[in-house]
Amino acid sequence: MTCTACNGPRSRPRTPACPCPRARADARGGRPSRRRRRALALGATLATVLVLGGCASQAADRPQAARTAPQGAGTRTPVPTVSRRPSAAPVEETVAAPAPAPAPPADLARTDVDGAIAAGVHLLALLDHAYASGDTAPLLALSGPGCGWCRSMADQLGGGTVVSRGSSLLVHTPTSATAQDNADGTYVVELTTDESYLSSREVDGVAVLDLVSAQTYVFAFSVARTATGWQVDGVALR
């Protein structure tokens, strides 16, 4: 018989313990024998397998949480909607209707020299009306297609180059007139005219006109009698 602790012969075959120091230490509960160590190691291995197997089965039985993409991955960040305060309702500006065009003088219906002079006087009145209101249609209606001065004034007054709209007034006052008959239905009319610029202002609710400037001009009109009435074909200053 040999000792399992030291592999030496036992002193007494029937005695389970060997007298060697290592065997005695095993008998006293000190260092475990090799066979015992093997048994303990095998038991520890089995316990580890059982524990790992139990954890694996619990992990398999546990429901898996759904995976979500990290915030911002593959998606567009929504743009926050900015609420705007409603703008105030537009205030409707009340604009007074322009004054009607001046009525043609009675002499405009004549077919002689007096009719030609009336055409020149009326054209200046329509010029004053266009200056105050921007309404150039009556001025152009009395002008012939070849009157460049008439077209130029209509473009300035109707197109916004000169904007008065009642804040200032242009007034032509003829003081004398002469006319030359060309014996072909055309006339040359000369009008000596005082031209005044007036500024309008309100005092205690009453419109007051202030004289800004005044000059005297001599207008020369080329006037023709047509089948539909008089027309001004040209204007010049002398």
Rank of each mutant, 00 (worst) to 15 (best):
A99Q: 14
A99E: 15
A101F: 05
A103G: 04
P104H: 03
P105M: 04
L108I: 08
A109V: 11
D112L: 00
D112W: 06
D114R: 14
A116E: 06
I117C: 10
A118G: 03
A119F: 05
G120M: 02
V121C: 12
L124P: 02
L124W: 02
L126G: 09
D128Q: 12
D128P: 10
H129I: 04
H129W: 03
A130C: 03
Y131G: 12
Y131C: 14
Y131N: 14
A132E: 14
S133T: 15
S133H: 13
G134W: 01
A137L: 08
A137D: 14
A137I: 09
P138L: 07
P138S: 07
L139H: 13
L139E: 11
L139Y: 08
L140C: 11
L140A: 07
L140M: 07
A141F: 06
L142G: 09
L142N: 09
G144T: 04
P145H: 04
G146H: 12
G148L: 04
W149Y: 14
D155L: 00
Q156D: 14
Q156R: 12
G158W: 00
G158H: 03
G159C: 04
G159E: 00
V162I: 14
V162C: 09
V163E: 12
V163W: 04
R165C: 00
R165M: 08
G166T: 04
S167P: 08
V171N: 02
H172E: 02
T173F: 01
A177C: 08
A177G: 12
A177V: 08
T178E: 14
A179P: 07
Q180E: 13
D181C: 10
A183M: 10
D184P: 05
T186G: 08
Y187F: 15
Y187G: 03
V188R: 15
L191W: 00
T192H: 02
D194V: 01
D194L: 01
E195L: 06
L198W: 05
R201V: 13
R201W: 07
E202D: 11
V206F: 05
V208N: 10
L209D: 10
L211Y: 00
V212D: 13
V212P: 00
